[in-house]
């Protein structure tokens, strides 16, 4: 093929025509192989793409199936489903307000305790912890994140709830606040919130630790150089610098807390009542699902539970989406 392009070497080419022929065959074989590789590559691309698409399809499937299954309840109750305060399978009346309220209250209690403690843990791990201990202690916190929620649930039911009943709740009831009214049952909304807070601490703490580590050392060293104490460095340099990521970590914890099922179901008390007292038994969206679904009547009770599930999924999706967006922004800063 190069003969016409280089007429000056024509003579040599003639002499080596046999070599050219062999070369041509080899080239043809090579072209075939390249073509084969190309098809294989296309196939490989398609297969991996297909599996990646499967993940998206699964998500879509969840939303569509929940919507589809909950149609009857929306047809019957309309938007009243979201703010109705009666949830009574015996009368076939379903309003989600109690479950929504329980979910929000338990998650709020959880964050109230988990955020400062997680911040303390992250601060300890990044600033004051001796280097030797940094890795094992970090791993311990990560192990806590790996403990299945049913373990937290059984521990909360048999260990934490009796302790609260005996020691903590009588003291709090003695304050006379309406928030802490009623008998000390041990189980209830408050205990559920406490177990949840222990559960989400490792998630929030590890995000906070990760974003704290993105602070350029030169910034901290400058502050130390000016005579700042460790606390002042964290308060005035680290926190402002990592604000977005920290909020993202808190949102991640919130997302976890809202959707957590087992840890809550064990200790919340499973009562479909609204109560102003945190010590009263209640229900969250997830615990209602766990308690009632397997024995629910398929006509309206099951659709109502599907509607609750849809609500929970939409809420957590928004919260977790926000969390991811924020933590991504928080950690990307490290590159700048």
């Amino acid at each position: 093929m190069s003969a016409s392009a280089h007429p000056t070497v024509g003579q040599t080419l003639n002499r080596d025509s046999e070599i050219v022929a062999v070369h041509g065959a080899a080239q043809k074989a090579l072209a075939e192989r390249v073509a084969k590789f190309a098809t294989q590559d296309k196939l490989f691309h398609a297969v991996t793409l297909g599996f990646a698409a499967l993940v998206l399809v699964a998500l879509l499937g969840i939303v569509v199936s929940l919507l589809f299954e909950s149609v009857p309840v929306f047809r019957k109750f309309g938007t009243e489903f979201f703010y109705g305060t009666t949830w009574s399978p015996t009368d076939d009346v379903y309003g989600a307000a109690i479950a929504i309220f329980g979910t929000l209250v338990t998650s709020t209690i959880a964050l109230l305790f988990a955020v400062p403690i997680s911040f303390g843990i992250a601060l300890f791990l990044t600033e004051t912890c001796p280097l030797v201990l940094r890795r094992p202690l970090g791993t311990a916190i990560e192990l806590l994140a790996g403990v299945p929620s049913i373990i937290y649930g059984i521990w909360g039911l048999f260990v934490l709830a009796p302790l609260f009943q005996q020691y903590l709740q009588p003291l709090m009831i003695a304050t006379g606040l309406p928030l802490f009214a009623g008998p000390p049952l041990g189980i209830g909304v408050f205990t559920a919130g406490m177990v949840l807070s222990l559960m989400v601490i490792p998630f929030i703490a590890s995000v906070m630790r990760d974003v704290f580590e993105t602070v350029p050392p030169v910034l901290k060293e400058s502050a130390y150089g000016l005579g700042c104490t460790t606390w002042e460095v964290v308060r005035n340099v680290v926190l402002p610098y990592t604000r977005v990521g920290v909020i993202g970590g808190v949102m991640l914890g919130l997302g976890r807390a809202l959707g957590e099922t087992m840890a809550v179901t064990f200790v919340i008390g499973n009562a479909n009542r609204l109560s102003s007292s945190l010590f009263a038994p209640g229900n969250s969206i997830a615990s209602t699902l766990a308690n009632e679904f397997a024995e629910a009547d398929p006509l309206l009770h099951v659709p109502a539970l599907f509607a609750l599930g849809l609500l929970l999924f939409v809420i957590t999706f928004v919260v977790l989406g926000l969390a991811k967006w924020l933590t991504d922004r928080g950690t990307r800063k490290a590159g700048i």
Binding site: G255, T261, A286, L289, A290, T316
Partner: peptide, 10 residues
């Protein structure tokens, strides 16, 4: 991090 109980519903 999505609630696993919703996966159960699905």
């Amino acid at each position: 991090s999505a609630p696993s109980i919703v996966v159960g519903l699905f």
